[in-house]
Amino acid sequence: MFGKLLKHEFRATGRIAAPLCGMMLALAVLAGMVLRFWGDLPSEGFSTAGNAIIILYGMSVFAVAIGIFIILMQRYKQNLFSDEGYLTRTLPVSVHELLLSKLFVAVIWYLVTCVLMALSVIIAGGLSGEASWSGVKELFDTLRFYVAHISAADVVYVMLSTLGGMLFITLLFYAVATIAQNFNKHRLLYYFMVILIFIALTRLLAVFNLIFTVRFAGPASGSVGVIGGADGPTAIYVTGSHVWLGLIELYLGNALLYVLTWAFLKFRPNLE
């Protein structure tokens, strides 16, 4: 059943998300072509249209980044709490299957979107000509430089924190929407109240982390460094055991949000 849920989840989200991504890639091609022939554009009208295409491409990247998130959150709410919920929540599947399928599809879409956004930049840059290609090559050289200076543990940390962050933002919305659903009146008000409570909790956690790091972990547990020099790229990095504490907290927070959402869906379905 989990596979079938995934199939229908991809179908429902893909029908909006796929054209949005396709539009961004198409605009990347057009923007690349405009940049390539910028000096040879025959009239001012063409220049204006070219400008518009480049601006539209920039906006489409932004629209995809925001749009995917909105599509996924809207899907969650509509699929479980609107009229569609009468169908979804009478399917012979467990709440875990329902929730995990949505979470899995959300993470896949975030990753696909990131890859496609990077691809669109490469396409636009590639088509715009030799000068831009060298810019893209420079970008990869820079990335290689960074990669050469970081350890395997750092790569794992970055990957886990990226994944954890994606899960956190998604689960936060799921939990807020699910808890707020239990209030039959002034739902929007409770919606914002639940968000504020969660934000306050995360802030409190941040304060705790700061105190913990300063008081107990101390400077010996981690270090701050600089990559590169006068001729190369420069970055500041923070490593050490205390950064892993934040990661553990992030995943504990995710687990808590998941359990909350699951419990409310399971024990307080409330489709009145």
Partner: peptide
């Protein structure tokens, strides 16, 4: 709705 598990 109770029979369908939509309410508890």
């Amino acid at each position: 709705k109770l029979a369908c598990g939509l309410l508890t």
